[in-house]
Design a protein around this nucleic acid. Sequence first.
DNA 1: CCCATAGTTCGGAATTTCGGTACTAATGGT
DNA 2: ACCATTAGTACCGAAATTCCGAACTATGGG
Lengths: 114, 114
Amino acid sequence: MHPAMADVRPEAILHALSDPVRAAIFARILRTGCVEACSAVSALGDRVIPKSSLSSHFKVLREAGLIRSERHGVEMRNHSRWDEVQARFPGLLPAIINAYAAESGTEAGTATGP
Amino acid sequence: MHPAMADVRPEAILHALSDPVRAAIFARILRTGCVEACSAVSALGDRVIPKSSLSSHFKVLREAGLIRSERHGVEMRNHSRWDEVQARFPGLLPAIINAYAAESGTEAGTATGP
DNA sequence: CCCATAGTTCGGAATTTCGGTACTAATGGT
DNA sequence: ACCATTAGTACCGAAATTCCGAACTATGGG
């Protein structure tokens, strides 16, 4: 379910984050520290994303090694594997997050941590 | 044909480089400074990539704002837009190139320039 | 002009993604 | 224990994307 960090491939990370919806989900996980899948729906701007799509987006992020998901009662807690990814591919995640932030004019300073 | 750098979107860059073949092409352009499409075929490891596929790979890289292509007689000279991309999304390209280098064990030091 | 070489375009097959419906898992109330 | 409710996943057909062979276009040399 969760790949070992040694098995994580850069192309999987790039592919996962090349989708704006997934990038937004990941950014949100970084900001809030922890997000359950369903509540992310309404919060992702105007677009309504069906549950099944959301579920597969989380799956892609999980299998790319970007997040870790664990059940907590009836809901799912997703948190980023920032430190692990950072150790394996230094600077990759900050650069990507900053690129998205620069694009959307979301003047968010320089990303350096989760 | 070549987008203005202001129109370049991070998702396009991530998508373009999330394909290992395109990433290899781009890395090769960075190393050699300049590459024509057809000769890249044989040089990209063992795999034989048809001309038509190569052509569309170059198109994706071009439209992502990563490379600039210009005819020089009968052949095509492709060179990277590294500095422009670097100005728009600082650190993004080095991080991606390093990630691929780290994965393939191609101990290539820290990427900092074209 | 004709040929050779370098790339693009086109079109159909294979693959991937999207999303609705049906299903499973866990919890709380009664 | 049972049912209702809520969270998420599995499955499957539709839509979109990618792949690549064949036909086409462009440029330069003889």
